[in-house]
Write a protein that binds this DNA or RNA. Structure first.
Lengths: 163, 163
DNA sequence: TATTGTTATACTCTATAACTATA
DNA sequence: TATAGTTATAGAGTATAACAATA
């Protein structure tokens, strides 16, 4: 890498900035970031516990506890599909579905505010580059609205057609 | 903001990606991210508990516990300056200082790897934009190597002189 | 009275190990 | 035996409230 010394630390600072703002918006919706991530991942289809644990980068006991707390709050529910009596699938309740949709809209609205110090052109450029990094570096999960990892791999923001 | 719908969620995904990699590098150095942040903030000068709590965005009891654990591990030590017998200042031990310097070097080396899918030119551009966002949006703390918030505010990466 | 820092308590998140029930 | 999920236990991080000592 040709990055300047200290850039790694700046990236960490940026990540902290983003996550703090995200956590604050989550709190206004009475959700924790982990609950939001969980809801995000099952909002379109139910998933099994093992699959969820892998997607979220958690060990299974960690997921069990997270689900316990979310279930206690009426956000998700466990289902037992017929084909395997060991299995559990998790889906959102209507309350959980509403919560994650409202949160997603709010995050989409307000989180990009961190860029407001940039010119409109630079904001545009930054957005392209972040999308390229996210696509390339395998952004962990389905934080996006598109259900699955969006992976259109064009990284040449400098030569972006639709600008 | 003119950002596309879903971009806020992509930013969160990027933040998670960065923090996961950061946490992993911290773990290799036998530090938690919170301990790293703490050490980073006192590596050049001792600070009082109240000041530290404000800088780190923590309530004071949270900081007390963090310091307890770091002290137990020999990373920091509490000092009692003469001028106010209520006050406590915190400084690094030699062990703590070595640990944070080694970590910082490693983070600087390896964290920018997340950009390796971009062209060299786009990496450069991205670094400029991130620096501009960090300067503008007030990146929370002294994750950088420069001790205090670097705030050269030029945001026009597209017209950057030294490229 | 206001401030510095701590202790007490509680909850979320996460990890490892041991366990149950099913396949 | 292998897999799905849970329970048990532990520790880090964070919050609020109550407290101590000093200013």
């Amino acid at each position: 890498m040709t990055a300047h010394h200290g850039f790694g630390a700046t990236l960490v600072g940026l990540a902290v900035l983003i996550q703090r703002r995200h956590a604050q918006i989550c709190a206004e919706h009475d959700l924790t970031p982990a609950q939001a991530q969980l809801l995000c991942m099952i909002k379109d289809q139910p998933r099994g516990m093992t699959e969820l644990a892998q997607l979220m980068g958690l060990a299974k006991p960690g997921l069990s506890g997270l689900v316990d707390r979310a279930e206690r709050r009426g956000l998700v529910c466990r289902n037992t599909p017929g084909y395997d009596r060991r299995a559990v699938t998790l889906s959102t309740t209507p309350l959980g579905k509403d919560a994650i949709e409202a949160l997603f809209a709010d995050v989409s609205d307000r989180l990009p505010d961190i860029l407001e110090g940039l010119s409109a052109q630079d904001q545009h450029l930054f957005e392209h580059l972040v999308n390229a990094v996210a696509a390339t570096a395998g952004v962990p999960l389905h934080f996006g609205g598109r259900g699955e990892c969006g992976d259109r791999g064009e990284s040449t923001a400098t030569a972006c057609g639709d600008c």
